[in-house]
Computed example of a mutant assay.
Amino acid sequence: MEIFIKEHETKGYAIAQENEKKAGAMTYSIAGEGLIIIDHTEVEPEYNGNNLGKQMLDKIVEMAREKNVKIIPLCPFAAAMFKKTDDIKDVLKI
């Protein structure tokens, strides 16, 4: 499984692919310098139960740390992960 970040203008994506087939995506809006808003998580049904959503979130958190960006998790999945995962709260916009 490969997960990569792609940005275009004011939108960003963590895209998960396996053998060039899309397995899932987590989208975010670039809300200004130093802030992104995670707005949607989608995992293809055949990849459910593989922790793919968390892997995509981890990729975005890694990018946020590198760029010194804070995250607002509007997506219900991302919001739930931030509530229960202490080691990613350093990038959470309070």
Rank of each mutant, 00 (worst) to 15 (best):
E42R: 11
E42L: 03
E42C: 13
E42N: 10
E42Y: 12
E42Q: 03
V43C: 07
V43A: 02
V43I: 10
V43L: 06
E44K: 14
E44V: 14
E44R: 12
P45V: 13
E46F: 05
E46A: 15
Y47C: 10
Y47L: 14
Y47D: 10
Y47T: 13
G49K: 02
G49P: 00
G49E: 02
G49Y: 07
G49S: 05
N50W: 07
N50C: 09
N51W: 12
N51Q: 15
N51R: 15
N51V: 09
N51H: 15
N51D: 04
N51K: 15
N51M: 12
L52M: 14
L52I: 15
L52S: 06
L52W: 05
L52H: 05
L52R: 11
L52F: 08
L52A: 12
K54G: 10
K54E: 15
K54I: 09
K54N: 09
K54R: 15
Q55F: 04
Q55Y: 10
M56H: 06
M56D: 11
M56F: 01
M56Q: 02
M56E: 05
M56T: 12
M56S: 09
L57V: 10
L57Y: 10
D58S: 06
D58G: 10
D58W: 08
K59H: 07
K59G: 02
K59P: 10
I60Y: 08
I60V: 13
I60F: 05
V61T: 08
V61M: 11
E62I: 06
E62M: 04
E62R: 12
E62S: 09
E62C: 09
E62N: 10
E62D: 08
M63R: 11
M63S: 07
M63V: 07
A64D: 02
A64F: 01
A64R: 02
A64H: 01
A64N: 03
R65T: 03
R65Q: 00
R65S: 05
E66Y: 14
E66V: 03
E66N: 14
K67A: 11
K67H: 11
K67F: 12
K67R: 13
N68K: 15
N68L: 06
N68M: 07
N68I: 06
V69T: 06
V69M: 08
V69Q: 06
K70F: 07
K70C: 01
K70L: 06
I71C: 01
I71P: 00
I71L: 01
I72K: 04
I72R: 02
I72W: 02
I72Y: 00
I72P: 00
I72E: 00
I72V: 11
P73N: 06
P73M: 01
P73K: 05
L74G: 06
L74E: 04
L74I: 14
L74K: 02
L74F: 14
L74D: 04
L74H: 03
L74R: 06
C75T: 00
C75V: 00
C75S: 02
P76V: 02
P76S: 07
P76T: 04
F77A: 09
F77V: 00
F77K: 12
F77Q: 07
A78P: 07
A78F: 03
A78L: 01
A78D: 00
A79G: 10
A79K: 14
